[in-house]
Design a binder for these strands. Sequence first.
RNA 1: GCCGCCCUAGCUCAGUUGGUUAGAGCGCUAGAUUGUGGAUCUAGAGGUCCCCGGUUCGAGACCGGGGGGCGGUACCA
Length: 489
Amino acid sequence: MANDPPRPEARAPRGFVDRRARDVAAERAILAAVTEVYERWGFEPLDTGAFEYADALGKFLPDADRPNEGVFALQDDDEQWAALRYDLTAPLARFAAQNWETLPKPFRRYAHGPVWRNEKPGPGRYREFVQCDADTVGSARPEADAEIIAMAAEGLQAAGLPAGSAVLKINSRKLLNGLMAAAGVEAEGQKLGVLRAVDKLDRLGPDGVRLLLGAGRLDESGAFTKGAGLSAAAAERVLAFTVAGVGGRSETLAKLADVVGGSAEGDEGLAELSAIDVALTALGVGPDRAIIDPAVVRGLEYYTGAVFEAELLLPTTDERGEIVRFGSIGGGGRYDDLVARFTGERVPATGFSFGVSRLASALRAAGKDLAAATRGPVVVIAFDQTRMADYFAIAGELRGAGISAEVYLGSSGMRAQMKYADRRSSPAAVIVGEDELAAGTVTIKDLDLGRALSGDVEDNAAWREQRPGQQTIPRAELTAAIRKILDAG
RNA sequence: GCCGCCCUAGCUCAGUUGGUUAGAGCGCUAGAUUGUGGAUCUAGAGGUCCCCGGUUCGAGACCGGGGGGCGGUACCA
């Protein structure tokens, strides 16, 4: 054995997860529910490839001809760098620029699929995950933003999160810029620091944010985060802004006007948010489903106006019963400059993206799994190896009737086959041995019924004696009998 | 990137001051029951003690270096 080649370790790369039937079903259910909403609101599907040229993603390291860290990139045989998409918005911008002349405008599309991020995974954070986006390209109207928000709210509801269990939070980059102008923050580095500090309000609370706005903060692991270095007065001004999100949307806007009104950009942001508020109300989206929250920042890169974030309000626990905090389960905003990168022409655009994978785990953690428990197929016991043809005929008949069925194809005995059927969550097993063949009958066993009764049985002899849920019927009645068991489940 | 914790069977873990052939529970395979799921009993399979080097008569344990994982933090389009 010493000369055997080393065996590879069977493991998935970190940040990549295997999903079994239950998880796949849950994600599919969410996708089906959300895309149905998108289509009903007049958005058309668009599929683009997993790879984009890295320059189309706009992700090159400064002063390097190599793509940014954070994306999975490879060099094609023509030396061009291609990278796996890290979201669905950049590919849309590329597509819109490429086909702009021929598209009906505004262009309304939805898309879903996996995206990849080459970064350190964490709890609830993967390097491959599924997003589901809807975007409107070519409309600068605040109503376009409002429609995206209203649709996202309906999507949450369709996915199993009605009002009260999740909320959409709205803010505007223009407000944040107005705030910083009012607080006298001008240096670029300092602006970034302020935005990052504000973004952490929900996690660190006002005291943590105050530290980050000032000198810096030492976390419990001992790592120090440098702060934005604002004066105490400026920091308090920023804090007052971030915590102003209380009550209804128009009340919040009035409060915010006191803080950022006066600066040109702040006033513009306020006007846009007001228009969004009015449109949302007209669309029937109340403050129980969408609020204005001045602490929402989102990513720093491409948003130019309104920004949105979907937050889960349900309490969630992990498999050990400990409380877990989920980050946002979706987000979006207005990005008016993204298409201009390709065409030079400014094209207003706005959109929203659900994190489907995270939404699925959030629903599971909250005990609100959309998908019912997965059902296995009816298992035809391979009792007599010389009668496989009969077993395949039975499976074929069931399949023809639309019933999921299979013949056991392993090599184990009957006991193991029953156990197999049990573990597949099969509704029923079909047993055809020599007795049945001779009599022209089949024996079917209702496994669900047996599962329900098994708790009361003490010894195996009695259990076997009872044969719960078992019946022997004429061969011709097989499909009808199985159907009856399925309907009862 | 920074800080901390961890690494022994498929999984969760025990392993005494350094001592001979490395253990448990669960899970898996099978038997008890030539044709029946749960429970019970019995048997079996399953190990690079993360890797490399060092100390030692002797290392799963001690020392040094490396790797991997987890958590926090930073970044996050």
